[in-house]
């Protein structure tokens, strides 16, 4: 059986609407903001309109059921119902839209924005594209010394970082709930496992304020550790982050 074209349009519209809700609500774990949904659905309607009125023929086929409703005397009772329900629905929608909106504005930020190519830390310029953790080599060369460095990194962490990132490194420290954005979860494969040690060095040394605008530096509570830790301590705490989570830093060879 051929589905009438008008019904096709309605089905496609509803299908896409539900898909947005499902993808955002369940897959991405955040309900889609209504302003974004309205915008997307506007494009969907425009697209459908263009496709379904591409030829005169298809236009005629599309509007035929609507025309019949108005022009076919046999359908008068249905028409009367539709003609009352449609304006009422539109009125209710308009009323809702006009009510003031008390939902907080959406704040999108990029969690891992592109780092600058060079940064100034400790009054010194670092080239992030070549920077490496100077302590990493001990992992192979002197495992005993490496364990010691990791232990020192653990100490830096437990004295400074666990308040926010949690002593299980799961981003759930005692004060995590009071912060927005939330401290990052280093156990998650989406954070340090994706990053190079030089990226971490930049993020730890320059903190929230060191982020570019797309990272919303004005929101992040990540402190500027350059002010509290030495360069050596930052490299050690980086060793610890990878050691405790079992992740491996990304390296240039992998790219």
């Amino acid at each position: 059986m051929k589905i009438p074209r008008l019904l096709q349009v309605v089905l496609i519209f509803v299908g896409i609407y539900v898909a947005f809700k499902v993808v955002f609500g369940f897959v991405l774990g955040q309900p889609i903001p209504s302003s974004l949904l309205t915008m997307y659905m506007f494009f969907v309607v425009a697209g459908l309109f263009m496709v379904f009125t591409f030829t005169d023929e298809s236009t005629r086929e599309l509007v035929a059921p609507i025309k019949a409703l108005v022009e076919d005397p046999a359908r008068k009772p249905v028409r009367n119902v539709v003609f009352i329900v449609v304006p009422l629905l539109a009125g209710a929608y308009a009323f809702n839209v006009m009510l003031p909106d008390f939902d907080a504005p959406l704040e999108l930020r990029s969690i891992h924005p592109a780092p600058p190519s060079t940064v100034k830390i400790y009054d010194q310029r670092y080239d992030l594209s070549t920077l490496e953790n100077p302590l990493r080599k001990f992992q192979k060369d002197d495992p005993q010394k490496f364990r010691l460095l990791v232990a020192e990194g653990a100490e830096v962490y437990i004295r400074n970082c666990h308040y926010c990132h949690g002593d299980k490194l799961d981003g759930n420290g005692p004060y995590a709930q009071g912060l927005n954005p939330i401290p990052l979860n280093f156990q998650d494969i989406g954070t340090i496992a994706q990053l190079q040690e030089s990226f971490l060095f930049w993020r730890i040394a320059t903190g929230g304020p060191g982020l570019p605008d797309e990272g919303a530096p004005w929101l992040s509570a990540m402190p500027v550790w350059e002010n509290f830790l030495s360069e050596d301590e930052i490299w050690k705490v980086i060793l610890f982050l990878y050691d405790y989570t079992g992740h491996r830093p990304r390296t240039w060879e992998q790219e």
């Binding site: 955040q30 299980k168 981003g171 995590a176 927005n180 939330i182 998650d188 494969i189 989406g190 989570t245």
Partner: peptide, 22 residues
């Protein structure tokens, strides 16, 4: 009740796997 702080939080599962693996 308090946990779903604005934004979402990957549950402990990922880390559990990580620690078990290690």
């Amino acid at each position: 009740e308090a946990a779903p702080v604005r934004g979402h939080h990957a549950p402990g599962l990922v880390m559990l796997i990580a620690t078990l693996g290690a």
